[in-house]
Design a binder for these strands. Structure first.
Lengths: 205, 205
DNA sequence: GATTTTTTGGACTTGCCGGTCCAAAAAAGT
DNA sequence: ACTTTTTTGGACCGGCAAGTCCAAAAAATC
């Protein structure tokens, strides 16, 4: 906890500039690789080759090996998820804004196609506590944004006040996640669109 | 296609009674095992031990090895999914019927907890054509049942006719899948409930 | 510029797991 | 009863991939 030595996120004690660069290169190279290719059974040696590093470097920067590295990549990808929905997600204050947000979500996942980098990572890392923490944090933030959007609309009198903002926000999260899941297995975004559109219709009342 | 020899689903040519029993024992034992335990990295040797069989038996009944066996288990589990929702899912002809169905879905997944056997299988088998076919078939049937329920309600004048039954049914599928996905990572059914309840509210108009 | 720390290369170990193989037991067919 | 087919046991193989280790290069520190 309060050890005398400053510990970074990664558990490595003190990285030089070069070291930090290498670490970042590994994360981003791995992320790009997992984003592009079939992620099932990606090996450390693949990542080593892609990022032009050696085995010892990987274990130097991620002492706990594969799991630690993949978690770092998962965090990296989780950040992208919300970023890609901005600025729309942060300002759901009018119906056109909701439409723009809807379009950005659909577009993002349509472009992504069957590959859900985050889902793939999660499947690999499985259900370790760390993995759950990453997903939970992401979903919580996401849902909070949506809930705030609903509340703002209610405050502006554009959505009926009786509606349970948190509940509907949770339904949005479920619908989007499920839509993406279906997309991964069918390659079609129709379910994602149906879920989001139906829920927006519901907001409109 | 029309070969002179009768071929079974499994590709094995002719099984005796005992053989069929063994094959079934393997599938059901594997299914139970995958349902109960952490499915990440389940090995053929685990299944061999659990089902009291030998390596040669597994490859005798599932010549293509792991993938074929896991697909068989996935089919087995997929059947259970819809069965568990019957008879409610087949007769969504009144509001109380929708409520009963809702409760059965929530109860089923609450009982299942974090373990989604089908999801786990899919993560393992990954994105082979066979795996996609299993999920697609399941989701299609599921959605068809829901759509029929909506149409029946519309015919009875209980749901406004303007509503796009197929679209909303797709939203249900997405919401349920997403709710289960969230359940798997958080252990809570609130998202599943929120999704189904919100969509039923939407049907009520 | 000497020393200490960090970074890097890559060979090597280790264990695991999917899949093969053959021969024996059991069952079915005649 | 004999033959043929199916079923079963389990030893074995081969490959792969995570992780270890040590020494050398590079950088930082003094």
């Amino acid at each position: 906890m309060d050890s005398p030595v400053q510990k970074t996120y990664s558990g490595v004690v003190a990285l030089t500039t070069k070291g930090r660069a290498t670490r970042q290169r590994i994360i981003e190279g791995a992320a790009a690789y997992l984003r592009a290719d079939e992620p099932a059974g990606v090996t450390l040696d693949d990542i080593r080759a892609i990022t032009g590093t050696s085995k010892s470097q990987i274990f130097h920067y991620f002492p706990d090996g594969k799991e630690e590295l993949f978690l770092a990549v998962a965090r990296h990808e989780a950040d992208r998820v919300l970023d890609d929905q901005q600025p729309h997600l942060g300002a759901l204050t009018s119906w056109p804004a909701w439409e723009r947000w809807r379009d950005s979500v659909v577009a993002r996942y349509r472009a992504q196609g069957r590959h859900c980098p985050l889902g793939a990572l999660m499947a690999q890392v499985g259900s370790t506590p760390g993995a759950r923490e990453v997903t939970s944090a992401l979903l919580n933030q996401w849902q909070a944004h949506i809930r705030k959007g609903i509340c703002d609309m209610q405050a502006a009198g554009l959505i009926r006040a009786g509606l349970d903002a948190d509940r509907v926000a949770a339904a949005f999260i479920a619908g989007i996640q499920g839509g993406v899941l279906v997309l991964m297995s069918t390659g079609s975004v129709t379910h994602l669109e149906a879920a989001v559109d139906t829920l927006v219709d519901h907001l409109r009342g």
